[in-house]
Design a protein around this nucleic acid. Structure first.
Lengths: 190, 190
DNA sequence: CGCGCGATTGAGTAATTTCAAATCTAGTGG
DNA sequence: CCACTAGATTTGAAATTACTCAATCGCGCG
């Protein structure tokens, strides 16, 4: 759980006892490539912290097209937050793109921890705030840049995505067809 | 400041003394239509709570096209969060779409309040979490729905926007040209 | 009443999608 | 080590959709 401790301690310093208490609420799980942590309709109880590997969160529309809401690489948190907060069934699929290892915590335990330890609540406020800014940047990017530029930004920002994620998934994340992305890409470099 | 108190108390109960303390950090300001709270390049010191009216947050790209990041109606918080958190100059314009009244708090005072009062930190964690979910929904909507559908969703969800905001701004929010939005709209109802 | 801003409409152009087929690649079993 | 296969990527061509630019229309405000 050292990774998790490091992750918390980037924002809040913790004594051994404190971290021991926090980590007592987490469990570990490994998922194989193509395995699901969540499927549409599932009850959502947990929030997941990716230790290694990569998870994609996506929806499938009525025309069977896949739209990717997010990728979670190492050190990222993911879940169906809407469902988690409102106690409704999952509206997304959460699937491993590569062999993945996560720590996960039950939503009610997280709330309990936040209520008991001000520090922990601070940690998650900061995390949420950063996440909010990240999504704002993504929206701005969708509004102001075309798919080619966004593709290049993405690869510059998260080069490891390129190793792990098929291009068709990147297209489904960027909001263009795989054919278009392929053409943009070939035009750019040659 | 009763509006603000009500707003806090939707999430955390407050004694008179507590709210008095919290509200002591807020100031009030009125902005006329077309007036700016932030312009690109400004230092960003505050977070704004809209009491009445409407603020739009937007960027202008190199081709002078406007892209709207968000509208803030009554009961919403807004600012350039990226700039606020990283102490960098504003990259957005924050402009009143209608005569608007805000309460605002300095970032450092907000942090201080969060550090001093666990309750307040809880309030903002919840707010941030809700905001995060809202942005996720918007991204999903951008990926899965065309401009017409998104326009209708928007008007269903925030009918008051329709009263206040010119259609060309809605187009700049949805990510299509005003001409396209106009055509989509006329096709739908006729 | 006229001005100016916003909204609409039209026509031509550019970009993206769709559908189909071909090519490439990584992993499997012989 | 090679052949095979499934999935991923690329390419082509037609059809759709959105954009740009320009002109026109409508309306509220001074």
């Amino acid at each position: 759980m050292q990774v998790l401790r490091d992750h918390f301690e980037k924002i809040i310093p913790l004594s051994d006892a404190e971290f021991a208490y926090i980590s007592s609420f987490f469990k570990q799980r490994k998922v194989m490539k193509k395995q699901f942590l969540l499927q549409e309709g599932d009850p959502v109880m947990h929030e997941y912290f990716v230790v290694k590997g990569c998870l994609k969160a996506y929806v499938v529309d009525s025309a069977d097209k896949v739209h990717i809401l997010s990728f979670a690489l190492a050190d990222w948190w993911t879940s169906d937050y809407q469902a988690l907060y409102t106690h409704t069934p999952s509206s997304i699929f959460l699937e491993a793109v590569a062999p993945t290892e996560v720590y996960y915590i039950a939503q009610e335990d997280k709330e309990r921890l936040c209520a008991e330890m001000h520090k922990v609540e601070h940690f998650w406020r900061k995390k949420n705030a950063m996440g909010y800014v990240g999504l704002q940047r993504r929206i701005l990017s969708m509004l102001t840049h075309n798919a080619k530029d966004r593709y290049e930004q993405l690869l510059q920002q998260y080069p490891s995505l390129f190793q792990v994620v098929p291009k068709q998934d990147l297209a489904a994340f960027l909001g263009v067809s795989r054919e278009t992305l392929s053409r943009l890409y070939s035009k750019k470099s040659g």
